[in-house]
Structure formats: structure tokens, C-alpha cells
Simulated assay, not measured.
Amino acid sequence: MLTEVVAHRGASADLAEHTLAAYQLALEQGATGLECDVRLTRDGELVCVHDRRVDRTSTGRGVVSVMTLSELDELRWGDEDKPGVLRLESLLELLTPGVRLFVETKHPVRYGGLVEAKLVALLARHSLARPANKEESPIVVMSFSQQAVRRVQRHAPQLPTVMLSGTRLAPRIGDYAGPSIERLRADPTYVERAGRPVYCWTVDEPEDVLLCKRLGVRFVATNKPAATLEVLRGTVPESEPSR
């Protein structure tokens, strides 16, 4: 099975993460998957922000969960021409046949399981919560929280899930295993032993891309979709330094 490229927070090595422009560029570069992180605002809206605070990625300061959507919309995010935080609903509009969106729910958070409940409700409104089968689902839900993955399985059993993990062993739940690239470097037998397809994050170096390809990793999450695709297609020598 071919290794598929998932744009981690968009083409985030080229443009500011979690901006519409970064995701549009990733699709132009040939990514067949998009990855985002979601958090809840104080007024219950799902927005695409990785950090607990807005300080690193916007012109503001503060904690996402205590800010309203309108307050987040007053800020500039990355290099965007206009103020406004990226809503998950806006990202759903980019989906076309053959493109998957991998949604990571962040934990621990102020609102706990409400994040997954709101996510499933939004997907249901867009007729995305009940795919015909998991393999063809345009949405995959992920988390580092075992409880979050189980909540998604309970609320929307037809949605595929990923149990993300770092360098330690993770509970054997989810339709896909989600190890870090550090884990695969240290334990190349992981993929064979996983017993299910593997989603690996975050894979930017050519040698790591080739490692994933050799091991049979199904999805690689990368900040560099274009460069990663070049390596997978064999158009970049293995010894070429990363860009």
C-alpha cells in the first residue's frame, strides 16, 4: 500500500500553521491528507489552534478556552491578510473526493469531553459522521487521550480513529496506530507488530520519509508536503539534506 502524505497543520514549513492559505497550498502541492488541532472557545466554537494559548501563533495573548470566537477573530494569525481564527467548519469546506482530514482533539482541556461531542455534532451537520465505511471516510479523529478516542468511538462508531503516542507504548485502541517518528527510529519493528495501519508524525527529514516508506507506514504527517512527496516518488536522492 502506498504511503500517503498528510499536511501537518497545512504546508506549515512554507506558510503559517492553521491558516487557510497553508491548507490550500498543501492541496496544491499534492497532499491527500490534512491535519489540524481543534479546541473549544468560551462560547463553544471549534477552532484550529494547536497551543493552549494564542501567544505563539497570533498577535494576541491569552488562553483559547477563555476567549470567545469574536475575540479570536480580532487577532491576526500568521501571515493572513485579514484577522480571524480558522474555524474547523471552514476547513471542512476544503475537502474534495480523495482528501482526508485528520482532526486531533487536544487534551487536557477546560471542557473535557465536550470537545468530542461538539466535533461529532459538527460532522453530523455536514453528513460526515456516518461514512459508508472507515476506509473511505473523509474524516479521521485523533488524540493523545485514550478517553477522547473512546468517546469518539462511542459517539460515532463509524468514524476511524488514531491513538497518538510519543516514544512510549500506547493503549491498543483505535483503527490506526499513531507513533512519533522518534518511536519508529528506535523500534523499526513497531509497524509490523502494530496489527493495524500506522499514522506517523511528524516526518520532515528525507531519511525518515524513506524509513516510513520501507516500513510500510500508511500515513506520514509532515510540515513539508511537497518535499516529502518528492522523496516518496524517488525524485530526490536519499542523501539530499532536508530543506
Rank of each mutant, 00 (worst) to 15 (best):
S143M: 04
S143N: 06
P171I: 04
H8F: 09
A21D: 13
R42G: 01
R9A: 05
E116M: 06
L92N: 10
G174L: 04
Y199P: 11
I181F: 10
V115C: 11
L215F: 09
R233Q: 13
V6E: 02
V140C: 12
L159F: 10
P157I: 06
R9F: 04
V99P: 08
R125P: 00
E182A: 14
P160C: 07
H18M: 02
D37V: 05
S239W: 15
L46S: 06
D37T: 10
C36I: 03
Y199F: 15
A11K: 04
A221Q: 14
V5M: 11
D81N: 06
V85G: 12
Y111Q: 09
A170W: 01
A148P: 04
Y111V: 02
M1L: 10
A31F: 00
G195I: 07
S242M: 12
P160W: 09
P138G: 11
G10W: 05
Y111A: 07
M163V: 02
R218E: 13
P206R: 08
V109P: 00
P83N: 13
I139F: 10
R150D: 07
A16G: 11
Y23M: 03
V140N: 12
L15D: 07
L94R: 14
L75N: 07
C212D: 12
G60Q: 01
V103M: 12
T222G: 12
E17G: 01
L164G: 09
R185D: 03
P225M: 11
A16I: 01
R53M: 09
L92Y: 13
D43G: 00
S127K: 14
R183W: 09
D51W: 08
G84P: 07
A177T: 05
R76L: 05
L2R: 13
L164S: 09
V140A: 03
G112A: 13
R130G: 02
G166I: 01
E17I: 02
V115S: 11
L95S: 12
T202V: 15
G174A: 07
V115K: 07
G174T: 05
V64C: 08
C200N: 13
G62K: 00
L119I: 04
L169H: 08
P237H: 08
L101M: 06
E35L: 13
R151V: 04
L34F: 03
R193V: 02
V54R: 06
V54A: 10
V64W: 03
P188E: 01
L114M: 09
Q158D: 15
V38S: 07
P237A: 13
V149A: 07
S165N: 13
E135N: 07
R233N: 09
R183E: 06
L114A: 14
L232S: 09
A13E: 08
L40D: 04
A226I: 00
K213V: 02
V231H: 09
P197E: 14
E135I: 04
V54C: 09
V5G: 09
P179Q: 02
R214I: 00
G174N: 06
G113W: 02
P108F: 10
R53Y: 10
E230M: 10
V109A: 15
T3I: 11
M142F: 05
